[in-house]
């Protein structure tokens, strides 16, 4: 397969950056999107040019590093996958593919397609610890949790922190991510002790990082590789507003 690649190049955070177009030939339809970029980069290195910088780690859809905004959508046109799980058969031969970094004030560009997502880490850190008893290993099933609740909490916990929700949202809002992180603990008995405090602190940190507000467009959930549901955001709103109304401070 043959492609025209329109890729965002930016030397560093201070650089203004701009698009550069590359022609790439001999791409197999079975290559993953990242392998396709690897091929391009080898050619660039052979020509003594700076290769395209991009984030990746597991290449099996679980780490959430491979942030690329492809043809107007985070992680490209295929639903429910990250960029590393997207294959060139999802594109047509000769197509022009536009590749941009995640765009958000809270995700500054490091270089080319790599952005700094430590704002997400700070939101999680703001949530703090959960209180647990020390001592021996607890018995399995010691704490009774209804299967439906455990399943729902697990669904929320599948969020891999990739940031596609922020990239997809017209407001660069992080609500889907933050709501998944708040939900996974608020539903379980282990998360009850710090439940209110956690919701208040994580939302405050989310706002401080400069993410936008939610307009409930649903773009985040539609583009999320893990299919995190919008009901998480509704739950976060309940948790946050309830905590604000009833907490001691």
């Amino acid at each position: 397969m043959k492609f025209k690649l329109k890729i965002w190049r930016q030397k560093n955070n201070q650089d203004k950056g701009g698009f550069k177009t590359y022609d790439l030939d001999g791409v197999s339809s079975d290559m993953s999107f990242l392998e396709m970029i690897d091929v391009l980069n080898e050619q660039l290195i052979d020509k003594d040019e700076d290769p395209v910088h991009f984030d990746h780690d597991c290449r099996e859809g679980i780490c959430g590093m491979c942030s690329m905004y492809i043809n107007g959508e985070p992680h490209g046109p295929l639903r429910g996958v990250t960029t590393c799980q997207l294959h060139m058969r999802s594109f047509s031969d000769g197509e022009t593919i536009t590749i941009e970094p995640w765009r958000a004030k809270a995700f500054p560009v490091i270089k080319d397609l790599a952005v700094d997502r430590s704002a997400f880490d700070r939101v999680i850190q703001a949530g703090g610890y959960i209180s647990v008893n020390t001592g021996g290993t607890p018995d399995a099933n010691e704490i009774p949790i209804p299967k439906t609740v455990a399943d729902e909490a697990f669904d929320s916990a599948t969020c891999i922190g990739c940031g596609a929700c922020v990239a997809a949202c017209k407001n660069a809002s992080a609500m889907l991510f933050v709501s998944a992180k708040i939900s996974q603990l608020s539903m379980l008995p282990q998360g009850q002790v710090e439940r209110d405090e956690r919701a208040e602190k994580m939302v405050a940190q989310m706002d401080a990082e400069g993410f936008g507000a939610c307009t409930n467009t649903g773009a985040c959930s539609a583009e999320c590789p893990k299919g995190i549901d919008l009901s998480n955001i509704a739950r976060m709103n309940r948790e946050y507003l309830g905590a604000k109304l009833s907490s001691g401070k």
């Binding site: 107007g72 959508e73 046109p77 765009r103 958000a104 004030k105 017209k170 407001n171 660069a172 583009e223």
Partner: peptide, 14 residues
């Protein structure tokens, strides 16, 4: 929250 925009956005897809 998004000072630099995208060159292409496929909003109708999502």
């Amino acid at each position: 929250a998004r000072p630099v925009g995208y060159s292409e956005v496929k909003g109708s897809a999502n």
